[in-house]
Write a protein that binds this DNA or RNA. Structure first.
Lengths: 343, 343
DNA sequence: AAACTACACTAACACGTGTTAGTAAGGCTT
DNA sequence: AAGCCTTACTAACACGTGTTAGTGTAGTTT
């Protein structure tokens, strides 16, 4: 019933040589000389039998798995936001190209349990990629201390970390200037998550500072936190506009939330950008094609993922890494969701 | 530098017993009797050293990897549509709960290359999940013939297949009736992909049949194919409405495409649903919170993924599987993107 | 007293691979 | 003819684990 698997022993038997010879031929080793005729006979036998080395045996022998783990910490966001999957698949692409497999690890943090231990200590993976790591993640810091290959998307400030981040400061400044030039003065914000997440905190802080430079204070009453989903953006906006109906511009924490922000504004009878302008972050694939097309701060998830995966490949292959912390620029994409303030 | 890994040998030495004893204790085997005192000493030693069995050795010894592969065939769709990731993460959740890891495999089909061979023949995985399989996929049929554990999301009609599909026929009927009751007669469609993909073909065929039952023919001129993204929906709609400006209702192939459809209609100065009604498929998390909230055929990706993963777990654990082909019902969700036809 | 049982543990094998040290034979040099 | 190099190959080990058959001892039965 179960097709017995083909081992190098079978190949050896068919080719009339020893198992060692099979291994040497198939791995192209030139440490020992073999006649061309024998080599060909072995290759042919392997082909006929459809031989593939058993990967577990390979891992055991070589002491590596050619597998990289991917940890996604923000489990709440996975199902409702498109950004993580974009990173994920970009990473998968690059790693596959370099000969590595990608093992997905979604974990919930439990008290007293180090979520990295299982994968790492059991030698299940050669390296770990962490998306949106928490700055105060004790276990992650410990893992970095141990020297295990880790690449993060997002920094936790560890001296040895390899990370890729996107700096939104300049773009936020540019977006704020854009909004101010359109005449807006009553400005609110709907971050994409509760406070405490690094991207949320930094975007909010940058926004606050830029507005402040221009003499506008971003009052706490003008902020209503979302929770990753468009739904949360929708509900937050309803609350926000009930409390602060004078607002004419809203900075959404990301494009998914912005979708809900626009939906809520419209449901309140407000037009975008006629009555209220909306700015997002990320520039998801759909952002240019919704109604109205969204003005947003482009993050380039694809490039971010690819560079992170490149870092991992370099690290695993022992290649030199000139820059351990890559910082990508963002870019403001002006579209139709922002407009001149109503009279 | 490199922290040498802890093996059962180390544990044995510390506990003052043989390696066999360590293995027996830690696996809770009662095939041989051991004193409680020794057991405790071994457990303590293992705890102190932080011992975890080497997974490669385990795989080799046990002949299984406790790993499931996930093949995503529609690489074009991955980055631009939210449906696949939802399936993906639901599957990952269930498998993890059952003690399996998930290995991601995104592959491009190349001539003469069997994309399943590597993972399967090298014993890298115990089972394979295939998302949106092609009906005529020769290699997949061969894999099923071989008896290797495969679960598909989407059917290819193989006699032994394990699959989960969602039947949209009833919902399409219901949605069509809904649209007709609103007075619409000039109806178009923007499928989410080119023809040839099973979901696209079946949805289109169901739509055609239902309309036909009501005396309306869905002309080819009233169909403009999308290509997975919101952008493709946007562009297709521009073409479609230029060609058929009389249309008052559009069935989008999925919600992502519907996003672009609505965007395009608005950019043409048409309101939704004032001038044109739009129906989507999937009910993505954002669909209820965009503007206008989208009327759609709900697919329940999460449940689909969970059931598929359950099938896989049952299959791998040798449990009985009463129904090899699960067919889930869909459900029409009426929202504000559909309305009475304009006068 | 011999034989058996129960207990506590270990030696040895097998999983499938890559690699190093070693063997055998033939041709060449001295 | 003895020694040496080259060519062609293989035996044997190691990776770390789970398990089966087996060993020895103490206690109990016949």
């Amino acid at each position: 019933m179960k097709a017995k698997s083909v081992t190098s022993h079978d190949v050896a038997k068919l080719a009339g040589v020893s198992r060692s010879t099979v291994s040497l031929v198939l791995n192209g080793s030139d440490a020992v000389s073999l006649s061309e005729e024998t080599k060909e006979r072995v290759r042919e036998a392997a082909r006929v039998l459809g031989y593939r080395p058993n990967s577990a045996a390979l891992m055991l022998r070589k002491g590596r798995t050619d597998t990289v783990g991917l940890v996604i910490t923000e489990t709440r966001s996975i199902r409702v936001d498109a950004y993580i999957p974009m990173l994920h698949y970009a990473i998968a692409d690059v790693l596959k190209e370099a000969g590595y497999s990608l093992l997905l690890e979604t974990f919930e943090r439990k008290k007293g349990v180090n979520p990295y231990t299982d994968l790492v200590v059991s030698h299940r993976i050669d390296g770990l990629m962490v998306l949106s790591p928490h700055v105060e993640d004790k276990d992650l810091h410990a893992l970095l201390d141990s020297g295990f290959p880790v690449v993060q998307i997002g920094s936790i400030g560890h001296p040895d970390e390899l990370s890729v981040t996107t700096c939104t400061r300049d773009s936020t400044m540019e977006a704020v200037r854009h909004i101010l030039q359109l005449g807006h003065r009553a400005i609110g914000s709907v971050p994409f998550s509760p406070a405490g997440f690094s991207a949320t905190d930094s975007r909010l802080e940058e926004l606050r500072q830029e507005l402040s430079k221009n003499g506008i204070t971003l009052d706490d009453d003008c902020i209503e936190f979302g929770d990753f989903s468009a739904e949360s953006g929708y509900n937050a906006t309803l609350h926000l506009m009930r409390r602060q109906p004078q607002l004419t511009a809203i900075f959404a924490g990301n494009d998914t939330v912005a979708l809900g922000v626009i939906g809520a504004l419209n449901s309140l009878g407000l037009s975008v950008p006629g009555d209220v302008s909306v700015v997002g972050y990320d520039d998801l694939p759909f952002s240019g094609f919704i109604s109205p097309p969204l003005t947003t701060v482009k993050m380039n998830a694809d490039q971010q993922g690819r560079l992170a995966a490149d870092l991992m490949v370099k690290r695993l292959k022992g290649q030199s890494i000139p820059e351990k912390r890559l910082v990508l620029p963002s870019e403001v994409v002006l579209r139709a969701s922002t407009g001149r303030v109503r009279n």
